[in-house]
Amino acid sequence: MDEIAALIEPQIPALRRYAVALLRDREAADDLVQDTLERALSGWSGRRRDGDLRAWLFTIERNLFLGTVRRRGRRGVDLGAEALEQVPDPGADPETAMGARDVLTGLDALPEEQRSVLLLVAVEDLSYAEAAQVLGVPLGTVMSRLSRARERMRSFLETGRTGLLRRVK
């Protein structure tokens, strides 16, 4: 196996997980990951040698996601509750599935910047500094977004309301 593949492929499971959490659609998520990998390969020689590979890949992925959302938004395609229903729950246990869908529904109601910071820190285990790099914001902003994200998620889990007018099953 070549060196680049040996470095990149171990990151693919996490890139897929983040993509699914953002897009709520397995096929679209793998498209996003594929595009991310293509972009990473074509930009490989230009990346910073001392940079953090994982943060670099997440940065590419998120930027591509934002570009996609903006174009879909212009055409009026909703990425919200409709897309949510397309997500097959990978867990076999229906009890778990019910509880888990609640969490993702709450997550979906967050602004993207809060959703991403929570996913990158709490699920992908990026350091706060790495998350700041991916989001292109100072460390303090990461902390304040994390606070807002956690506050809204607490409120959602307590009341079942996302604070937005969304169809919640």
Partner: peptide, 28 residues
């Protein structure tokens, strides 16, 4: 509550990262 949420979120999304990756995502 925040800790509990963190665990729920991780548990919910963990199976995705445990799947075999599709062949089309292989670097080669």
């Amino acid at each position: 509550a925040d800790r509990a949420l963190r665990e729920r979120l991780r548990a919910r999304l963990a199976p995705i990262a445990e799947e075999a990756i599709p062949a089309r995502l292989r670097v080669a």
